[in-house]
Nucleic acid binder design. Sequence first.
RNA 1: GGGUGUUUAGCUCAGUUGGGAGAGCGACGGCCCUACAAGCCGUAGGUCGCAGGUUCAAGCCCUGCAACACCCACCA
Length: 925
Amino acid sequence: MDSHFDPQAIERPLYAEWEARGWFAPADAAAPYCIAIPPPNVTGRLHSGHGFQQTLMDALIRYHRMSGRGALWQMGTDHAAIATQMLVERQLATEGKRPEDIGRDAFVARVWEWYERHGGEISEQLRRMGSSVDWGRDRFTMDEGFQAAVREVFVRLFDDGLIYKKKRLVNWDPVLGTAVSDLEVESEEEDGHLWHIRYPLLDGARTAAGADFVVVATTRPETLLGDTGVAVHPDDERYQHLIGAQARLPLVGRTLPIVADAHVDPEFGTGCLKITPAHDFNDYEVGQRHGLAVLNVFHADATINDDAPEAYRGLDRFAARKAVVADLEELGLLESVEPHRHAIPRGDRSNAVLEPWLTDQWWVDIAPLAAPAIAAVEDGRIRFVPKQFENVYFAWMRDVRDWCISRQQWSGHRIPAWYDPEGRAHVGRDEAEARRRAGLDPEVPLTQDPDVLDTWFSSALWTFATLGWPERTPDLARFHPTDVLVTGYDIIFFWVARMIMMTLRFMDEVPFRTVYIHGLVRDADGVKMSKTRGNGLDPLDIVDGIGLPELVAKRVADLPQRQMAEHIEATTRRDYPDGISAYGADALRFTYCALASPGRDVNFDLSRVEGYRNFCNKLWNATKFVLMNLGETGPSDAPARLGLPDRWIRSRARQMLEAVTRAVDTYRFDLYANAVYEFAWHEYCDWYLELTKPVLWDEGTNPAGARGARRTLLEVLDILLRAAHPIMPYITETLWREQAAAAGGAGESVMLAPFPQPGDLDDDPEADAAIEWLKAVVVGVRTMRSELGVPPRTTVPLLLQGGGEVDRLRLDATETLLRRLAGVETIDWLEAGTDAPPASVHVVGDLTVLVPLKGLIDVEQERARLSKEVDKSGRDLNRVRGKLANEKFVTRAPEQIVAAERGKEADLAGKLAALRAQLERLEAL
RNA sequence: GGGUGUUUAGCUCAGUUGGGAGAGCGACGGCCCUACAAGCCGUAGGUCGCAGGUUCAAGCCCUGCAACACCCACCA
C-alpha cells in the first residue's frame, strides 16, 4: 500500500466496477427501501446543494442496502421548461434569431437537441460523487411514459372539474411573455416613490377642506391610464359626502365613480385610492365588488396598448411612467412626490418586474386536493424531519390558492386541449380522444392549445410516474410509497406539497413516509452561494481539484454583470491562492454529512474538507498498520486470547455502532459522521493501535495474546470500514478489500457486506473501566513529562502512592502497556507512611501518580503548575461541599445524584491533600 | 403585519429525557518515536445574546427583550 491516500487513484475504477456489476439495482426478494431523487435539471450542472443532498441520500441508500433491504435509488432528470426555454432562446439570439423566426416545431427540436447534448453531464457528475443510483431505471420528465402520465392526470383532473380555464388577473412576466404562479414571484423591498396626484371632482363637488379635487397616492403612476374608479373607506368622515360623486381621470378624461370600500386604509396617504382593476390584485377585487370596468392598458410586453390615449401608446411601462408624471406636473396635478420603500414583485427566473395582467389561463382548483394532503401530515402518514417544517407546510396549505399551470412558452408538456372553430376547448389524452369525447366529426378542424404546463406539474407526479404509472408495473407495486424524500426547504411548496396532493389523488396513498428537510449550502461566511457573487464551489472541483487560473476563469465566465468580474477574481485569488486540491469524493461527502445538523444551513468551509481528507489518510494508514502487523501467517486457528485492550476496543466499537444506528434512524448525519470519526481516530488509532504494539512486538512471550490482538485489529477494522462505508464509499471499499483478503474472508464488496450491528459485539464494562484507568494514568504522566520538558525519548521512573486494591490489580494487568505508552522506566509503590520524594504529581481517583524530580527538573515551574492544580481542585471541592451543605439539595435531589456528589467530595478531598502535600515538599526545597 | 430558526471557545458548530461546558479548524509549546508531519504529545481559551421566572439544581423548561437570518402576506 502507498504511504498516502490518493483518492484520484481509486475512485473512478471502483465506481465503474460497481456500476458494471449491477450492484446499484435493488436486490430481489428483500424488503424494499426506496428514495426518489429530486430530479436535477437535465441540462444543469452539479452544484453544492446537489452534492450535499445526494451525499445524504446515498448514505441512506447504502446503509439500507447493507442492512438487507432491496434498496432502490430512483434516478431521473427534469426538463425544466422555463430554464431550457431561456437557454435555447439565448442560443438563438447569438444567431440573431428569435423563436418566432424559426417556428414552434424547429424550436422544440432545438430544445430536444439541447437535452441530448447536455443531458449526460449531470449524470457523469453524480457518478463522480459516488452516488449509487439505479441507472437502469433512469427517467426523464419528458420521456414518453411521463408524457402519458401528464396527459392522464390532466384529463382526469379536468373531468373531475379540478382543472379549469378562466380569465383573471395573473402574475405576468412581460420579459418571458408568460404567466407564472404565485410561487414564482419574489418580492423584495426596493426604493421607489409615492406620487400624490390630483383627480378633479365633477359637478361642483368639494372635499371637506373645500378643494375641488381629491388626491390619490400611487407608486405606479402609469397605471392611472387604466383607472376606472376612486375608492374611499365607507367610514371615513372626510369623504363620506363624496361617495357616489364622480372624478375626472387626468390625462385621459374618463369619468370615475367614487365608491366606498373597506379595503381602503384611511390612515395611508390621503385615504383616497385610485382603482385600476386590470393592473392590481386588490383593485381587481374592489372593482368586482362595485361593478367597475376592467380596462387593460398593457400589451403582453408591458408596453402601453391602444386603449390608452395616443400619446402613450407603444411606450414601455417605465417610459410611460416618466411621461405620465411629466404631463401631470405640467398640468399642475402632481401634488407631491415622496421617497417610498415598497415591495416589488419580480420573476424568479427573469428577475423582471411582474405585472398583474388579465389573461385566460388554465388553473388547478387546489382546495379539494389540499384537504387530504393536510390530513396526511396531520395524522402522521407523512412526517417531516425536522418537525417544525410541518408548520410551514400547514400554514401554506391551509391558505393555498388555485394554481396557474399554463405557460405561454414552447418548451415543456403541451396542454392536451384542442379548440374547435368556435373556440371551445376539448380535452383529451390526444386529439383523437378529444374529438371523440366531444363527438366532433373528423372534418371539424381542431387546433391544440399553444401553451405548455408549469414544470412542477410533471414534477408533482415524480414518485409514481417514475415507477411506471399509469401502468401498474411491478416496480410501482413494490416501491411505492417511497420511504423518504430528501430535499431542501426552498421547494416545500413548489414540489413537496404538490407531490403529496397529486399522489394522494392518483395513487390513493402517500408519495413518501418521511420528508427529510436539509439546509441550504452557503459559503464559509454564511453567504448564499450564487453565480453572480462568484462564491460558489463546484463539488467536483473539490473532488478532483482545480488550479487557480481555471477557477478564476470559471467564476467570471458568463457573468451577468461584467463589473463583478474584477471583484470576484480578486476574492478568488485571495481565498484560493493555490487553487483547490483534489480532496476526493469521500472527504467531501464526509464533510457534507458532518455539517448536516438539522434545521440549519450549511456554511461550507474547505478547511473542514481538508480535515476529513486527513481522516481518510488516517484510515488508510491504520489499515496499513494492521496489514503489516499480521505476521507471517496472518490470522490462524491457533488459540487466541483477548487482552484487556482487545476487549475494550470491541466494547467501544459496540457503543459506536449504537450511536451510529441511532443517528441514522433519526437522520442525524452529523452525529453519524462524528461517531465514526471519534471512534476511528481517537479510540482505534490513538489508543488501540498503540496498545497492540507491545503485545505484537513481544509475541514470543505471549503468542496467544498476539493472535488475539491481530484478530481484533482485523475484526474491528472490518466493522469500522463497514460502518463508515455509506458516508465514504471509495476508501472504505478499497481498504475493506485489502482487509478481507488478509483475513481470508469472503465477500466481493463492502457495499454488499452486512451493516455491522451493536449485537455483533459484547459490552465489557470491566475492560472499559480498566482501559479508562490506564488512559488516565498515561495522560497524567504525559502531561507531567510535557510540562517538565522531559524529552520524548527519555524514560522516567514512576512512583504510585495510595490507591486501593483495584488500582493494584489494574496496574498488574496493564503495566507493560503503561510503560510503553507513558515512557516509564520503573514503577514502584510507595508504602503507606513513607514520605514521597520531591516530585511532579497527578491524581487519578484515590491514586497519586508521581514522577520524581531528581534535581534535573525546573522546580519553580512545577510549583507553579501544582499551585494552579491546587487552586482548581480547591474551587471544585468548595462547590461540591456547598452543594452538600444545602439541606434542600440533600433532601430533594435523587439519592444517586447525592451519592455521586459525596463520591466527588471524597475524591476531590483526597486529590487536594495529595497535591498540597507535594506542593509543600517542593516549597521546602 | 404574521410566522420560523439562530445566538455556546478566535472561526465553524455539537450538546439527545435539566445533575460537574465539548469537537474540528485556528493559536501556543514540544516531537521526523519502525501506520500516518495529511502525523504524534501536551497547553491555553467560554459570566452558553440580555433580563426575569420555575427548580435542590438551568446551555437545556417558562416569560419578556435584543440582534441576525429566513418564510408567508403586501397599505396603494
